[in-house]
Every structure is written in C-alpha cells, then in structure tokens.
C-alpha cells in the first residue's frame, strides 16, 4: 500500500506535517508582509503626490 509507512509512521508524519506547517507559515508571513508594505507605500506615495501638488 502506498501510504503504509511502517512501524515508525508517527515520526515520518510528524516530520512532514511539521515542515509543511512551518513552510506554510513562512509563505503566509512573507505574503502578508509584502501586501501590507505595498499598501502603506501606495498610501504614502499618494499623500506625497498631494503634498507636492499643493
């Protein structure tokens, strides 16, 4: 059977799940950080443009 991981299955599953969870968190963090910084930059660029126009 493809997913019969033998007597030490718990170690294999814990390793894969742990890595998947941390990698998902890392991807999520980098995405969140990128979006919030981009949003803040657009707001500031808008504000800076308005100031220059005044």
């Amino acid at each position: 059977m493809a997913f019969d991981l033998g007597p030490h299955a718990v170690f294999i599953i814990a390793a894969y799940l742990g890595v998947a969870t941390v990698v998902a968190a890392l991807i999520g963090y980098r995405t969140f950080e990128a979006r919030s910084v981009s949003r803040r930059l657009s707001l500031l660029e808008e504000a800076s443009g308005r100031k220059r126009a005044q």
Partner: peptide, 20 residues
C-alpha cells in the same frame, strides 16, 4: 525574491515618511 522586494519598499516608505 519576495522578501527583497518588500525590504526595498520598506526603505522607500522610511524615506517618504522622512520627506513628508
């Protein structure tokens, strides 16, 4: 790559904030 792009933008924010 994504982290570097964010860091460049973060530095731009800091300089814009100083200028404003």
């Amino acid at each position: 790559l994504v982290g570097m792009r964010t860091e460049v933008r973060r530095r731009r924010i800091a300089s814009l904030e100083r200028r404003l």
